[in-house]
Design a protein around this nucleic acid. Structure first.
Length: 106
DNA sequence: CCACTGACGCGAC
DNA sequence: CGTCGCGCCAGTG
């Protein structure tokens, strides 16, 4: 075992990325959902910042959208994000995503 | 320690 | 429906 001090420095951002990796293709989750997954139910905003900081392709950050189904933001451009989502057969209803594609349907 | 910044959420209008 | 305001949070200077 370790003499304590070290480790567990896993940044908030890192947790966010890990949780995001769990979102399956063809499905989306809200920033709030991710916040809940990492046990920080009120940190939806911080989640967005964390995703923005991410640049790895292993993190499907395009699958994270607003709670009302709107596209949300994307470091590489919202247009790009929408395209990626449509590629995964995500159903759009105007500018919002159909709730049936949400990981957690309400 | 304080002030400010965002890929947010939601109630009021 | 659309817009505005306020609350919430982790990071940064």
């Amino acid at each position: 075992m370790k003499t304590v001090s070290g480790q567990n420095q896993i940044s908030f951002a890192k947790k966010v990325w890990e949780a995001t990796k769990l979102i399956p293709r063809g499905r989306v989750a809200t920033y709030q959902d991710i916040a809940g997954m990492i046990r920080h139910p009120r940190a939806a905003r911080a989640v967005g910042n964390a995703l923005n900081k991410n640049r790895s392709k292993d993190v499907p950050c395009h699958r994270i959208v607003h709670a009302d189904g709107s596209i949300g933001g994307f470091a590489w451009g919202r247009e790009r994000k929408r395209k990626l989502l449509e590629n995964e057969r995500i159903l759009f209803r105007g500018d919002k995503i159909d709730s049936s594609c949400m990981l957690v349907m309400r």
